[in-house]
Design a binder for these strands. Structure first.
Lengths: 333, 333
DNA sequence: TTGTACGCGTTATCAA
DNA sequence: TTGATAACGCGTACAA
């Protein structure tokens, strides 16, 4: 049937022969109490399976003991490790995680933000689609940390895929490639802007020509659909905005019996599914789970009254060479 | 800087010239009030940007307006669509979603359960590792819905992969296969028990011999590692516990230059990554997102005082034939 | 170091 | 239909 009522601070106090404040302190400010008292109270609390009621605590302190993470699509393999990292960090600090999925729409992002902002002490916004103005306004109402979005004055965790992209271009250059296609992601995406700019500038430094393909959504299907254009472009290598798109391109090439890497090389980004692609895809790897941990750590620091605008955290990336890249011209391109 | 303090029920009451109870009712029980009063209060509330404080409401009513979803590993592609479905349903009903990741350990599952049970009105437990006894005990303390676990008396949503497995065996039988390997998942997994039993019985009905391989974890790496044993077994087809394991097997076969499906056929389960595998993998498909929605709907119904033990929801599956299965013997096995 | 007493914002009970 | 008031469980001045 229904549940027994959980023990309250008063019952513990009576059972332990102390006052309610002592019980409270045993949990929230143990350093104010003698070690012996803390020990006693904790033992009794354990026996009675006492767990502090967060609603009551929240009402009293104004802090929820929870943060919210808002992602554009939990099914995107980039977000799984990110959420995992956030989860782990929060679990360590005994903070709850509220999850929101915007389904890639700005409207839902706004609604969710409004709803969650009241329930959480802070929000991690990953891959936001809202405008700079909206985000800035929001950041004045609730502690906010951005992931992969650059916005002065708002704490953020950035994954420096640009450096990895340069490494990727150098790798291709060393293999003799001189004609490179870039398959972009969403136009509003900060990550895409970074990646595309890095590819373009690195390529021009190496004397490599870049064709920027026409694409928006970073999906498997979009990757498959890009293949004809890629072949037309006569590029000998493709760098994709992310692994999902890259894997789609690999799939499309496979269907068309285009040999990878003999006829064309392919590089992905994020290293989420690259290792499982066929052929195993060369990709720019980042520690996404760490990014999640850092985002959570940053947010919790702000929430707990630390630095209002900490320096951005920038995480390094590096190229992992696998089987989808090789010397140009094995097949006469 | 920080945010202005939000308006409270008392300020609205004063501004609207009514009592706090009236303001409260205007939001939670408008039918008790005259239309005019409701209108007045709501207007004033709007002007003052009043939003009810959920912590206070929770403290008073004992209801949190949130449910928790506990998964064993958010990075497993099975859980992403599940969480998505839950999220969607909860969002529709204005309920918040708390996320917990047990990292596949029973200990963390227990801790998390204890922690979240207090903060949520109910819990969805997906792929639990705890014992029947523990789960039963818990279900007496808080509304609980299981996903893919059979336990009498506890509301549950089950994906009937057994039927799909029989379909898969029939498919292989029709292709002439007579020697089949099954690559299992976790021994404690209800899903694995279902799948393995279905494969075994369906195969024996078709006169197909089944070799059950030795495996526990459904990971890509485990799939790769299974390949030598699979080849030794001289099976002409493999059915994997899930897509991830199946994709690993495909990868291992590819590395060993074993042709799929000419030399060996491979079938996955869940259809999470099957379509993106190479070759595109035949798999048993289920609507996991729907499972999530149903789980959330079931839980919310129970929470809201409906049926204490609703009938289990059982979702159908079907085989999706792709490129990883073909007639036996193209290469003399 | 510990206890007393009040307030956090809301809903429920009871009375008007 | 509306209002006054007592909980809900906890944290924290303030007092001891």
């Amino acid at each position: 049937m229904s549940s027994r009522k959980p023990a309250t601070i008063r019952e513990i106090a009576r059972a332990a022969g102390v006052s309610t404040s002592t019980v409270s302190r045993a949990f929230s400010r143990p350093e104010m109490l003698s070690a012996a008292t803390v020990e006693t109270v904790r033992r009794v609390a354990d026996e009675l399976a006492y767990v502090p009621n967060r609603s009551a605590r929240a009402l009293s302190t104004g802090l929820q003991g929870a943060i919210a993470i808002i992602v554009s699509d939990i099914a995107n393999p980039f977000f799984a490790p990110l959420v995992r990292g956030i989860e782990r960090q929060c679990d360590n600090e005994d903070v709850l995680v509220l999850l929101g999925d915007t389904d890639e729409t700005v409207a839902k992002e706004t609604t969710l933000l409004a709803k969650l902002a009241r329930q959480a002490d802070g929000v991690i916004l990953a891959g936001p689609r809202s405008s700079d103005e909206e985000i800035t306004a929001l950041s004045e109402q609730i502690p906010l940390v951005l992931v992969n979005r650059e916005l002065a004055g708002v704490p953020r965790v950035l994954i420096d895929t640009a450096t990895g992209m340069r490494e990727a271009v150098a790798h291709l250059s060393g293999l003799g490639h001189r004609r490179l296609a870039y398959a972009p992601g969403p136009a509003e995406s900060w990550s895409n802007a970074q990646r595309q700019a890095a590819v373009t500038s690195a390529a021009s430094e190496c004397g490599i020509e870049v064709i920027v393909l026409d694409n928006e959504r970073p999906t498997h299907e979009a990757g498959i659909a890009l293949v004809p254009t890629i072949l037309e472009s006569r590029a000998t290598a493709v760098i994709a905005f992310d692994d999902v798109l890259g894997q789609g391109i690999l799939a499309g090439l496979g269907t068309g019996a285009v040999a990878v890497p003999d006829q064309i090389s392919v590089i992905g980004c994020d290293d989420t599914v690259a290792a499982r692609a066929f052929p195993a895809m060369t990709a720019i790897a980042a520690d996404i789970e760490l990014a999640g941990e850092q985002a959570a750590a940053t947010l919790l620091a702000v929430v707990r009254g630390g630095d209002e605008s900490p320096d951005p955290v920038v995480l390094p990336t590096h190229l992992v060479v696998r089987d989808s890249t090789g010397p140009v011209g094995a097949s006469g391109n």
